[in-house]
């Protein structure tokens, strides 16, 4: 329902940030953002307002979250087929065989 696009803050002047969206710049208002924003931060823009400062470490966490989901499914034959090069992790043992 709500189109949100992340961008990187270039400048902050009062309650207005200039944000880079992959080479395109737009001013984004900071009235409702959850935390103070500085140049270099990522923000989530919705209708010209930043609604969230995205902490850089959370981006990494998202990636590891997905890795974890896949590891949990390692014993799944089809997943293993696609990701054959990755070794099954110990905790995948209890997720069952595909025909279980």
């Amino acid at each position: 329902m709500c189109l949100g696009v992340p961008g990187r803050v270039l400048r902050v002047e009062g309650l207005i940030a200039t944000v880079d969206f992959w080479g395109l710049k737009r001013q984004v208002r900071l009235d409702v953002v959850d935390e103070p924003v500085q140049p270099g931060d990522y923000v989530l823009n919705h209708v010209g307002f930043a609604i969230r400062r995205i902490p850089a470490e959370e981006i990494q966490e998202t990636l590891s979250l997905y890795e974890e989901l896949l590891r949990a499914g390692e014993s799944d034959m089809m997943a293993a087929d696609v990701r054959g090069e990755i070794e099954a992790s110990p905790e995948s043992a209890d997720s069952g065989e595909p025909d279980a």
């Binding site: 189109l3 696009v5 969206f21 992959w22 080479g23 395109l24 737009r26």
Partner: peptide, 12 residues
């Protein structure tokens, strides 16, 4: 182009 792709994403 990257700028058009970006504008399209921002504007939906």
């Amino acid at each position: 182009t990257p700028v058009v792709r970006s504008a399209a994403e921002i504007l939906g």
